[in-house]
Amino acid sequence: MTTPSQPGRLYGVGVGPGDPELLTVKAQRVLQSVPVIIYADSLVPEEIAGFAKPGAIIYGSKEMALPEIMEVTLQAVSEGKTVARIQSGDPSLYGATLEQMRILERERVDYEIIPGVSAAFAAAAVLKAELTVPEVSQTVIMTRAEGRVAMPEGESLIDLARHGSTLVIFLSVTRMFRIANQLQEAGYPADTPVAVAYRVGWPDQQIIRGTLTDIAEKVRDAKITLQALIIVGKAVDPNLLDPASDERVAVSHLYSDEYTHLYRRAGQGDHAAADRTELYEAGGYEVQPERAVHTSTGDD
């Protein structure tokens, strides 16, 4: 990256899927301090732009093409101003961020990307789902269905579906029937659980659950055609939340008394407690009755 030559700078700010309370502290601090904000007003609630300080200039970008957005940005930066470019979700996922960064690099503008909560993780939270369940799915693939945007070789939905992992599919809800058919063609069972999250984090949020057999019809009946995320796989099966599923589904080793890691050895009884005390102390913890409190040495 070249040394900046412009006096101002830009923050590319991910603000999450819609809920203003999902902003990071850093994102909110930036929005409250910059004099110029450009935000995707078709995808970002007005309340988030409302964090701007009094007197800030705010541009809605839904009717702006990239050249106009960058013209506003570069003009402000040349005047020594800091600009916040607000984007929904996280800028690194389908954020059209790379083309903006290339221009900033060419113009030698200082910039920083602030990550945001992806709709994928906001949806998983609403679903009360863990996307990586032991012996169910330990891999998450984030992709989109082929449409107006061509997919690179080897990344068609059928190619990716052959892994049988948890699939998070962005920007594709209008192709729900095709997606359901392709996934079954690739080997997903017809009863594979599917969840569609519409405008997750917004007041009109809607969650539709089904299987590859019926989800397309449910989405059609709900008249959902945009701003929806599709999650496919056994990891979003609501039956996993059933307490009785402990007998059928493997769980993480993390809290198992039979699993050894840096701070705990496998075992039971007094010997195990002594072993745990030794491991905690080796990790810089002061061990007190019934709990371990971390004590900083200044070298952490």
Rank of each mutant, 00 (worst) to 15 (best):
E99I: 09
E99R: 05
E99N: 07
E99V: 07
E99K: 00
Q100E: 15
Q100D: 10
Q100V: 13
Q100T: 06
Q100A: 11
M101N: 03
M101F: 12
M101T: 11
M101I: 15
M101H: 11
M101L: 14
R102T: 15
R102S: 13
R102Q: 15
R102E: 15
I103S: 01
I103V: 15
I103D: 00
I103L: 13
I103Q: 09
L104P: 02
L104H: 01
L104R: 02
L104E: 06
L104W: 10
L104C: 00
L104T: 04
L104I: 09
E105L: 02
E105H: 04
E105R: 01
R106C: 00
R106F: 14
R106K: 15
R106Q: 15
R106I: 11
E107I: 00
E107W: 08
E107Q: 13
R108Y: 04
V109W: 03
D110Y: 09
D110H: 14
D110C: 12
D110M: 12
D110F: 10
Y111V: 01
Y111W: 10
E112V: 11
E112S: 12
E112D: 12
E112Y: 14
I114Y: 11
I114T: 11
I114K: 03
I114D: 13
I114E: 11
I114R: 01
P115E: 02
P115D: 02
P115F: 06
P115S: 14
P115M: 04
G116A: 07
G116M: 02
G116D: 00
G116K: 04
G116L: 03
V117W: 01
V117L: 12
V117C: 02
V117I: 14
V117H: 02
V117T: 06
S118T: 13
S118H: 02
S118R: 07
S118A: 12
S118L: 00
A119N: 07
A119D: 05
A119M: 06
A120F: 12
A120L: 15
A120C: 13
F121C: 03
F121G: 03
A122F: 04
A122V: 03
A122N: 06
A122Q: 05
A122P: 07
A122D: 07
A123I: 11
A123R: 10
A123T: 14
A123V: 12
A124T: 03
A124P: 08
A124W: 02
A125W: 05
A125E: 12
A125I: 01
A125R: 04
A125F: 05
A125H: 06
V126A: 12
V126W: 09
V126S: 10
V126T: 13
L127R: 01
L127I: 10
L127V: 07
L127N: 03
L127Q: 05
K128V: 07
K128F: 01
A129P: 03
A129S: 12
A129E: 01
A129K: 05
A129V: 10
A129W: 03
A129I: 08
